[in-house]
Write a protein that binds this DNA or RNA. Structure first.
Lengths: 334, 334
DNA sequence: TTGTATGCGTTATCAA
DNA sequence: TTGATAACGCATACAA
């Protein structure tokens, strides 16, 4: 079970066994290396990472603090981070902390005990609290790396997604599809992210050459049915829109219903686009065009920063990308 | 940064400092304890859990291997597990492994190095592979505890959710609402889980006193629109149904659309129920009645088993529960 | 109640 | 190339 057992079985010293099994391959003859590997194999030996970490002062471990695993953003960040980290042979430890449940500072303090090489703070919706910043400063002082995904502080690496850019891209993609009279269903229940979205939609329309007179904006609740009603109004109005963009995928599904209720074919007659790419696209026969904000890539990036050797705080923005599906495809509108 | 620093600042030996800061409070005078705590506080000291684990042979750590963080089941299990574990002062490490990406045996081997006190295998869709079982056997041999959520092997603790029981409960709940002519939309794309569901629906109907002649079953693809079409057929048939149960929430949303298309009010005229409780209930103005399979509770349970001292393999089943919302409420149908 | 000494499993240093 | 030994940070048996 320990390195000593392996060494004894292979009839070598622990030092040699350690060298043979460690990552970099220091001078060990192929013969003994083989014996040691065989011994380790037959014993089912797994190196004690704790002991290793005790010496090296840090472990091949990344800690991530996330507010909610159930939200698409949180889950995606973890998924992306874990995928990258595992490919790099590292282990991820998780902790949850949101403004309600537990305080992030405590979580970090506990995780700090494992001497992770980095801490990733994901999905914090508010600015980091003072105790958290203190805790992270301690961690950083001992050589740890701190990466935020989303909100962050000035001293740390940060990965952000951009609602605004995603919205801009979306309008460009829609314009390229030939849509130009655009109904906009904004979400009154969102905060800054929602405003960024609307800002991007309008800016994107402008730079795509759509005059603002051809944009009709309606504020709606962030619910499916409310959006359906809003979409119905947009379709009723005299100067009929030829596409509808909604602030969330859920709302876009409502809009899709409205389009079909009006006897129109989504995509061909009226384009419909959501935002967030959070809806199971297989769940609707008419695939929903949406914008993937890149949360999963953000997790991936966060891990990348985690391994960076730069000393100044890095700030990366993940590019959102448009996912064109049938609901806004003129060519294959079903 | 180390216990030695704290001890020096508090002018005590490391042994005393260790005693003062350790969990159980062995004999340490209040005065020195105070000094030590103050020193630790001012230094931002966090105990080195690796060193501690090196001595104790195991760490306050639970490892969870999950197939996909993005699926509701995986995310929920992690959420539930983390919540419980943190309340118990433990840390969770995660690894992903599905049949596609990486093999679970490797993941377990790596995690084993951290000497976690338990490993939770969640969301394995196939029976455990031989290498995985070997790996887990090694872990168990060293005093580790293995808990499966979902599929498992005979030697280990296991937590299961029951599609069948959920379906039975659902029929009882619907019957209690007064529904009795039931259209059933089964999902031909699911495997055993789907058969369990149908089995439960029919058994539940029988035990709720609904003759099988009043149950109409249609097989449909697992998509929203396919289910909508199926629901439309059910509503068209002469002996009109007064409620529709669908194998998934996504399909139930399609059924909801069909009900409205028919000019009927969901809940009051025709009840609609999904399964899985995976849909954001706020997303639809008409809340969708569904069955929560209890994945999150399963994660919670898994942690509980993790801490159990019983030596025989435990097997727990999480009770699913019906979430009655407006789509199948006669009283408040909107 | 407190301090000293020993050991946990591993890696790194230095000799052989 | 290999082995003996020190060291990592912490917890505990034992001595004071």
């Amino acid at each position: 079970m320990t390195l000593g057992d392996v060494a004894r079985l292979a009839k070598v010293s622990v030092a040699t066994a350690s060298r043979a099994l460690s990552a970099g391959s220091p001078r060990v003859s192929e013969a003994t290396r083989g014996r040691i590997a065989a011994a380790a194999q037959s014993l089912g030996y797994a190196p004690n990472l704790s002991a290793r970490a005790t010496i090296l002062g840090s472990s091949a471990l990344v800690a991530v603090v996330v507010s909610d695993f159930l939200e698409p953003a949180g889950a995606s960040v973890v998924e992306g981070l874990v995928a990258r980290a595992e490919a790099a042979g590292m282990i991820v430890t998780v902790a949850s902390a949101d403004d309600v449940r537990g305080d992030a500072a405590t979580a970090v303090r506990r995780l700090r005990g494992l001497q992770p090489s980095a801490v990733v703070m994901a999905g914090m919706t508010t600015a980091p609290s003072a105790p958290l910043v203190t805790e992270l400063a301690h961690f950083r002082g001992l050589g740890g790396r701190v990466v935020y995904v989303g909100q962050g502080d000035a001293d740390s690496d940060r990965v952000a997604v951009s609602h605004r850019d995603g919205a801009v891209q979306l309008m460009a993609a829609l314009r390229a599809q030939g849509y130009e009279r655009c109904g906009v269903i904004a979400d009154e229940s969102q905060g800054q992210a929602g405003r960024d979205w609307l800002d991007g939609i309008l800016a994107g329309a402008a730079s795509a050459g759509i005059p603002s007179a051809m944009m009709t904006t309606l504020w709606s609740q962030g619910e499916r049915e409310a959006a359906r009603a809003s979409a119905a109004r947009l379709l009723d109005e005299r100067a009929g829109v030829d596409c509808i963009v909604a602030a969330t995928d859920t709302m876009a599904l409502g809009a899709l219903s409205a389009v079909r209720d009006a006897g129109l074919t989504p995509g061909r007659d009226v384009g419909v686009a959501g935002f967030g790419d959070t809806v199971d696209a297989d769940g609707v026969v008419v695939g929903l065009t949406s914008v993937n904000l890149g949360w999963e890539i953000a997790g991936d990036c966060a891990f990348g920063l985690t391994r960076s050797s730069l000393t100044t705080p890095q700030f990366e923005t993940v590019a959102p990308f448009v996912v064109l599906r049938a609901s806004a495809l003129r060519t294959t509108g079903s």
